[in-house]
Design a binder for these strands. Structure first.
Lengths: 247, 247
DNA sequence: TCGTTGCATTGATCCATATCAAGTCGAAAA
DNA sequence: TTTTCGACTTGATATGGATCAATGCAACGA
């Protein structure tokens, strides 16, 4: 099976064309992604219909309002989920990291646009496949429901963040979130959190202006809650996070 | 079958005790609720395990963080969904109206607290029942997934509202939402939208202060976008809503 | 090396919404 | 009817974050 064959390859080169790296058994997110829940026989089925490809930085794999009949698993890289108002105001509604998935039966039209923050690797299956797989393992759908509930919970937390938190709290909550998703490396008790996205995306996620975000980073550094803030990472000091109640 | 038997009746009288009104065939939200999707044989099953009761104003049927293993269909009345921060700040994450349901397999613990805004009638089934029902009609779960997606979409819209909209836009969006859910009666081209919740709940939903909400209502009345604003209803003037792009 | 270019930070000022403080209104109790 | 009480509105002022405008700074190509 060719890696690209079932795929619309318009735009975006597929660097994997000649190597059979798309076998699930070699996949490095299998244990953390939704695929963790799959049995060996299901995995074999997945292997048969799955198409893995590179999504170049900036490209969308799904657009707000457009129909979508595929499920994507993000194997490498990060993505941004956005919604737009008619006048162009943009809200980032979430970020996806290695192991996350998108596109569960979205009532045909997608709720948001999903774009690659860097060159991403994704696996793609048609929804139709899920229906078939569910016939042999009926609890597959329960697991999908459970995963979707997690997304819903995240959305609820985001609502609380935007509705009730101050700029400072928003930034700290965001760092918590990243730390949970990406996992900061621990050096000497401090944790360095990589920032896969530019400031504007963070600001649009937090409901703040670029400048306010920047000022808040500086303020947190001055207060000692953050040890270092650079373009693509933030280092939290250890005592700092323990001090605050986890808001 | 007694109406109350499968129910914990602690607190809240059950006014339906002597009348068999809990038959699905007589239910006035059957056509609008999730039950619309049920076949006749499924309905018969539902009738057998379903318990209908009155939830008195102010009482919670589900609390944030607490386990929940029931699905509820709201048959009459309205409810408020809230989340709290540790210091007591409250965010209203949504409202439920006649025909809505809550409690789809919430990974055991509930994302929010659901409280009655007035005396409500609800139908309640154990999740276990859904699993059994799904055996005979396997697409039941698809319909649940689809419904959950709708909730997720709503949450996304709420995120955009809180992250990007002005006070004025928030109030108008909220009225759109109510109009869609409750359906304002049309009189002479104007629509009266009943407000089942107090101002504080609306404010906490919109991420505004009580006073700002009140001022915004007054402003919209002055501008002619609203014809009348009273404690428990708002009347929109007809031309007004057409003027703006539906934000 | 030097521009150039694209982010990010910082500064000065403004404004939408919050906050604090009276009022007003209407429904239920006396 | 009057009183009372809770819910809403309105006013005066404060402020967190937005806006407008430089400035800093690292990566890249010439």
């Amino acid at each position: 099976m060719s890696v690209t064959s079932p795929f619309d390859t318009s735009g975006g080169d597929c660097r994997l064309s000649n190597v059979k790296v798309n076998s699930c058994s070699l996949c490095d997110v299998r244990s953390s992604s939704i695929c963790r829940d799959l049995s060996l026989s299901e995995l074999a089925q997945v292997d048969a219909v799955m198409a893995r490809r590179v999504v170049p930085k900036g490209r969308a794999i799904m657009s707000e309002g457009e129909p979508n009949d595929h499920l994507f698993v993000l194997v490498r890289g990060s993505m941004r989920l956005t919604k737009y108002l008619e006048d162009g105001r943009r809200q980032v509604t979430g970020f996806l990291f290695k192991g996350d998935f998108i596109g569960v039966r979205t009532t045909k039209s997608s709720a948001y646009t999903a774009e690659a923050l860097d060159d991403c690797h994704v696996c793609r299956f048609p929804h139709r496949f899920l229906d078939e797989a569910a016939k042999t393992s009926p609890d597959l759908k329960d697991r999908l429901i459970a995963r979707s509930q997690t997304e819903y919970h995240k959305a609820q937390d985001h609502i609380v963040l935007l509705g009730k938190k101050t700029a400072e709290e928003r930034v700290l909550s965001f760092l918590d979130l990243l730390e949970g998703a990406v996992g900061g490396q621990r050096a000497d008790g401090d944790r360095e959190i990589p920032l896969a996205m530019p400031r504007q995306d963070i600001a649009d996620y937090l409901g703040l202006r670029l400048e306010t975000l920047s000022r808040t980073f500086s303020l947190l550094r001055k207060k000692g809650l953050l040890k270092e803030v650079s373009r693509n990472s933030v280092t939290r000091s250890d005592e700092a996070s323990a001090r605050l109640p986890s808001i």
